Amino acid sequence: MSGIALSRLAQERKAWRKDHPFGFVAVPTKNPDGTMNLMNWECAIPGKKGTPWEGGLFKLRMLFKDDYPSSPPKCKFEPPLFHPNVYPSGTVCLSILEEDKDWRPAITIKQILLGIQELLNEPNIQDPAQAEAYTIYCQNRVEYEKRVRAQAKKFAPS
């Protein structure tokens, strides 16, 4: 494992614990031996107030490669969400998460999670990743928002 990646992720964890947006979660997972795995984080993004996503808490896994922060983490909703920019596998399609697009090593975990929260309610229809959600979003916004509200209710924190 890269010392650069681990040191950056340790800084990220410290900064997150000191200050993070209300309702968001970002925690490194534990290895079988109980030690912390900084390369694999369990996160959760709350649906934004005043949107059909409100009330939901959407679980996301963030996986970092050894060359982080040169390369972005892979962000994957578990379980996958109904959304035009979420692949059926759950992987998020967002330009700041793509090395050859808008990724920059200075982007923080907090910025990534806030960017994904923004994307939930403002899909990028130029870059669809899920045919069904994309089609319904474009053709029947009322039905799309109904499905999103049902999903938010399903993923409401207990």
Rank of each mutant, 00 (worst) to 15 (best):
residue 46 P to D: 05
residue 110 K to L: 07
residue 127 D to V: 00
residue 77 F to A: 00
residue 27 V to W: 06
residue 53 W to V: 05
residue 45 I to P: 07
residue 26 A to V: 01
residue 35 T to D: 02
residue 32 P to T: 13
residue 44 A to V: 08
residue 36 M to G: 04
residue 103 W to R: 02
residue 129 A to D: 05
residue 132 E to I: 06
residue 140 N to P: 11
residue 127 D to K: 00
residue 21 P to I: 00
residue 69 P to D: 03
residue 124 N to A: 08
residue 154 K to M: 09
residue 67 D to S: 13
residue 99 E to Y: 14
residue 150 A to F: 10
residue 30 K to C: 04
residue 57 L to Y: 07
residue 43 C to N: 11
residue 7 S to N: 12
residue 57 L to F: 09
residue 12 E to C: 00
residue 60 L to Q: 04
residue 21 P to V: 00
residue 32 P to Q: 14
residue 51 T to N: 02
residue 59 K to R: 13
residue 5 A to S: 13
residue 65 K to S: 13
residue 152 A to K: 02
residue 81 L to V: 12
residue 134 Y to F: 09
residue 24 F to W: 05
residue 51 T to L: 00
residue 83 H to S: 02
residue 5 A to I: 15
residue 116 I to P: 01
residue 107 I to V: 14
residue 12 E to A: 00
residue 105 P to E: 00
residue 79 P to Y: 15
residue 132 E to D: 13
residue 154 K to G: 02
residue 130 Q to K: 04
residue 145 E to A: 12
residue 54 E to G: 08
residue 46 P to R: 07
residue 153 K to Q: 09
residue 86 V to R: 02
residue 75 C to F: 15
residue 79 P to D: 14
residue 37 N to V: 13
residue 150 A to Q: 15
residue 16 W to D: 02
residue 117 Q to E: 09
residue 62 M to P: 04
residue 111 Q to M: 13
residue 70 S to H: 07
residue 127 D to R: 02
residue 49 K to H: 14
residue 4 I to V: 08
residue 56 G to E: 01
residue 15 A to G: 10
residue 75 C to Y: 03
residue 128 P to T: 08
residue 99 E to Q: 09
residue 98 E to W: 10
residue 82 F to W: 10
residue 114 L to R: 09
residue 143 E to G: 12
residue 82 F to A: 03
residue 64 F to Q: 06
residue 71 S to R: 08
residue 38 L to Q: 00
residue 85 N to G: 01
residue 124 N to P: 04
residue 135 T to Y: 08
residue 141 R to C: 11
residue 56 G to L: 02
residue 7 S to G: 08
residue 48 K to H: 08
residue 40 N to Q: 06
residue 91 T to R: 09
residue 152 A to S: 08
residue 143 E to D: 11
residue 143 E to M: 12
residue 131 A to G: 13
residue 84 P to L: 15
residue 143 E to A: 12
residue 15 A to F: 12
residue 4 I to N: 06
residue 143 E to F: 07
residue 77 F to P: 01
residue 87 Y to W: 06
residue 153 K to A: 15
residue 102 D to G: 14
residue 145 E to D: 13
residue 55 G to Y: 15
residue 55 G to I: 08
residue 55 G to C: 12
residue 17 R to T: 01
residue 63 L to C: 06
residue 125 I to T: 09
residue 57 L to S: 11
residue 125 I to K: 04
residue 132 E to Y: 07
residue 95 S to C: 06
residue 91 T to W: 14
residue 47 G to C: 13
residue 18 K to R: 13
residue 21 P to A: 00
residue 151 Q to G: 06
residue 36 M to W: 00
residue 109 I to F: 08
residue 121 N to L: 07
residue 10 A to R: 03
residue 55 G to T: 05
residue 127 D to I: 00
residue 102 D to T: 05
residue 147 R to C: 11
residue 116 I to E: 05
residue 62 M to L: 08
residue 119 L to W: 10
residue 48 K to C: 06
residue 27 V to D: 05
residue 82 F to D: 02
residue 29 T to Y: 15
residue 103 W to K: 01
residue 87 Y to H: 06
residue 90 G to K: 02
residue 68 Y to G: 02
residue 153 K to S: 10
residue 72 P to L: 01
residue 10 A to F: 11
residue 63 L to Q: 14
residue 73 P to E: 02
residue 153 K to Y: 05
residue 80 P to A: 12
residue 137 Y to D: 02
residue 22 F to V: 04
residue 64 F to V: 11
residue 33 D to W: 07
residue 157 P to T: 11
residue 138 C to G: 08
residue 124 N to H: 10
residue 68 Y to C: 04
residue 32 P to R: 15
residue 120 L to P: 03
residue 53 W to L: 00
residue 140 N to L: 02
residue 81 L to R: 04
residue 69 P to F: 04
residue 47 G to S: 01
residue 121 N to R: 12
residue 44 A to R: 01
residue 27 V to N: 08
residue 141 R to M: 15
residue 56 G to Y: 04
residue 76 K to P: 04
residue 5 A to Q: 13
residue 137 Y to K: 06
residue 130 Q to V: 04
residue 22 F to A: 05
residue 112 I to D: 05
residue 33 D to Y: 03
residue 67 D to H: 15
residue 88 P to N: 08
residue 112 I to V: 14
residue 50 G to A: 11
residue 117 Q to H: 13
residue 158 S to P: 12
residue 64 F to N: 06
residue 149 R to N: 09
residue 112 I to A: 09
residue 40 N to K: 11
residue 153 K to D: 15
residue 153 K to V: 03
residue 109 I to L: 11
residue 67 D to Q: 10
residue 101 K to L: 13
residue 101 K to G: 09
residue 80 P to S: 13
residue 84 P to D: 07
residue 76 K to C: 11
residue 71 S to Y: 10
residue 31 N to G: 07
residue 79 P to I: 15
residue 110 K to M: 06
residue 18 K to G: 07
residue 135 T to E: 11
residue 67 D to A: 12
residue 97 L to W: 10
residue 110 K to P: 09
residue 56 G to N: 02
residue 18 K to Y: 06
residue 41 W to C: 00
residue 113 L to V: 11
residue 65 K to F: 08
residue 92 V to R: 02
residue 8 R to N: 09
residue 84 P to A: 12
residue 70 S to I: 14
residue 144 Y to N: 03
residue 20 H to E: 01
residue 5 A to L: 09
residue 90 G to V: 00
residue 56 G to A: 05
residue 104 R to W: 05
residue 20 H to Y: 03
residue 96 I to F: 04
residue 76 K to F: 15
residue 85 N to S: 03
residue 157 P to I: 05
residue 101 K to F: 11
residue 148 V to E: 02
residue 84 P to R: 02
residue 107 I to M: 12
residue 35 T to P: 04
residue 131 A to L: 09
residue 61 R to G: 10
residue 145 E to M: 11
residue 141 R to L: 10
residue 21 P to D: 04
residue 119 L to T: 01
residue 140 N to Q: 14
residue 103 W to G: 02
residue 69 P to E: 01
residue 135 T to L: 12
residue 121 N to C: 12
residue 97 L to M: 12
residue 155 F to H: 09
residue 26 A to N: 04
residue 142 V to Q: 12
residue 79 P to N: 15
residue 17 R to M: 03
residue 100 D to A: 13
residue 16 W to V: 02
residue 133 A to V: 06
residue 28 P to C: 01
residue 23 G to T: 00
residue 99 E to F: 09
residue 158 S to A: 12
residue 139 Q to H: 13
residue 72 P to S: 10
residue 72 P to I: 00
residue 109 I to P: 04
residue 54 E to A: 09
residue 117 Q to N: 09
residue 119 L to Y: 14
residue 65 K to H: 12
residue 20 H to D: 05
residue 12 E to V: 04
residue 25 V to N: 04
residue 45 I to D: 04
residue 81 L to M: 11
residue 28 P to K: 06
residue 117 Q to M: 08
residue 48 K to T: 14
residue 138 C to L: 07
residue 123 P to D: 01
residue 146 K to R: 11
residue 104 R to H: 01
residue 77 F to D: 00
residue 131 A to Y: 06
residue 59 K to D: 08
residue 73 P to I: 08
residue 73 P to Y: 03
residue 137 Y to C: 03
residue 10 A to C: 00
residue 26 A to G: 09
residue 66 D to H: 12
residue 123 P to N: 01
residue 134 Y to W: 07
residue 18 K to I: 05
residue 88 P to S: 13
residue 134 Y to E: 06
residue 107 I to Q: 11
residue 59 K to N: 11
residue 145 E to I: 09
residue 88 P to K: 11
residue 37 N to F: 13
residue 105 P to G: 10
residue 140 N to K: 07
residue 153 K to L: 10
residue 124 N to G: 06
residue 105 P to L: 02
residue 119 L to A: 01
residue 122 E to V: 11
residue 88 P to Q: 15
residue 106 A to C: 10
residue 40 N to M: 12
residue 59 K to W: 15
residue 85 N to Q: 01
residue 111 Q to G: 15
residue 10 A to M: 15
residue 114 L to Y: 12
residue 143 E to S: 13
residue 145 E to P: 05
residue 72 P to C: 07
residue 89 S to Y: 15
residue 82 F to T: 05
residue 75 C to T: 11
residue 12 E to I: 01
residue 28 P to I: 01
residue 14 K to P: 00
residue 80 P to C: 06
residue 111 Q to F: 15
residue 141 R to H: 13
residue 28 P to T: 00
residue 45 I to C: 14
